[in-house]
Amino acid sequence: MGGRTEHLPQDFADLLAEADLPTLQAVFDDCVPDARGGYAEQTALAFDACPDDLARWLVAQGADVDAPDRWGNTPLHTRARSGRSTIDVLLELGADVHADGATVGTPLHAAAASLHAENAALLLAHGADVDARNRDGLTPLELALRSCSNIDLERAAPFARLLLDAGATRTPAMSTFVEEIGQRFEEHREKIPADLAGPASAGLDALYRLFGVVPAARRARHDGVAPIVVTSTRWQDQHAELWDSLVPGSGAAATVQGEVVRISGRLAHELEGNGGANWDDDFRAMARAFADHVATGTPLPDADLAEVRTAVDDLVRTGSGATARLAELAVAWVLRNPDPRPLDAPGYRR
C-alpha cells in the first residue's frame, strides 16, 4: 500500500457531505481503502453519507465490505440501524447479512434495535435469518420489543408485523416485553405531549392485539384537589395505591403527600434494590426533606417523628437505615393529611 495511512482524515465526514466523487477518491491516495475514522473507528463504507459510487469504487480497490468497527459492527450493521442512509449498495456488494460479531447480533438485529422496517425488509429479502439469536439470546423481534420506548410505539406494531409475516417465531418473551411496554407507557402517559400520545397509544393497542396481551390498567391519577383516600388496609398496599395515584412517572410529585410517598419509595429502591450504587447528596437531601414534610400539617406523633429523625440521621450518615419503616410512616402521614398541599420546588434533582 506504499506507506498510505490507515486513518481517514479528521474532516472525512464533512468531505462526504460536500465533495464530489473525484475529490473523495483522491483522499485514498493517502489512505488505504479500509482506513478508519470516527469514534467507532469505522471504514468509509460505514458512514451514512458514503455515496454509492464511492462504495463501489472502494470495494473495487480492495476495501472489505464487512470490515468491523471497534465494537464488531460491520458497515451493514451500522447503516441498517441508521435512519439516515440505505443499505442497498452494501447488499449489492455482497455484505454478509449473517455477520454476528457485533454486540447487537446480526444486521437484522441492528435494524430491529431502531425499528427500521425498510432496512429490515431489505435484509430479509437477502436471506437474513428472522430468528437468529444474539449474545443475549434474543431474536430480532424480541430485541425490537425489549428496546421499544414510548416514542417508538407508533412504529413498533408495523415492524413486528413485518417480521411475523416473514416467519418470526412467536415466543413467550415477546408477550412479556409487550406487557412491560404497556406498564411503562401508562406510568408516563400523563407526561407525553398530546400530539404524540394519541399515535403512541394507538400503536400500543396494536401491539396488544398482535400479541394477545391484556392491556395494562390505566393509572388512576389523583386530580390534586379532592381529598386523598385509599381503599386498601395493609400499609404496603396503601403505599402502592398512593404511589400509583400521586407519584408521576419522573420528577417530583405535585403535592407534598405525593412527594413523601415518592421519597420513601426512591430511598428504598436505591438502598435495598440498587445497593446504594447511586447514593449521593441528592438522596441525602431527599431524606432530610422527608423528615421535614412529616413534621408539617397534622404531624406524625412525637414518637414517630423521633423515629423518623433517627432513621434519616442513619441514612445521611451511613447510607443505610429503616427504609421500610419510613415507607410505612409516609402512609401514616398522608392518611393524617388527606387534603392535597402543593409542593414547592425541591432542592434536589432525583
Rank of each mutant, 00 (worst) to 15 (best):
M1D: 05
G3T: 05
P9G: 07
A13N: 11
G37I: 08
Y39K: 12
A40N: 11
Q42A: 15
A55C: 13
G62M: 11
A63N: 09
V65N: 00
D66N: 15
W71A: 11
W71G: 08
P75A: 01
R79Y: 02
V89F: 03
L93I: 00
G94N: 00
A99D: 10
D100K: 12
G101A: 06
T103W: 11
A113G: 08
L123C: 05
H126K: 13
D129Y: 06
G137M: 09
L145A: 09
S149K: 13
N150F: 05
I151D: 14
E154D: 07
G167F: 08
M174E: 12
R184A: 13
K191N: 11
L196E: 14
A206S: 09
R218F: 00
R219Q: 13
R234M: 11
W235V: 12
W235S: 09
A240G: 10
S245E: 04
G249Y: 01
A253W: 06
E259N: 03
L267Y: 08
L271E: 07
G275L: 07
D282T: 10
A295T: 10
G297M: 11
L300A: 11
T310G: 07
L315R: 09
R317L: 08
G319A: 05
S320P: 00
L329N: 06
L335N: 06
P340E: 02
R350A: 10
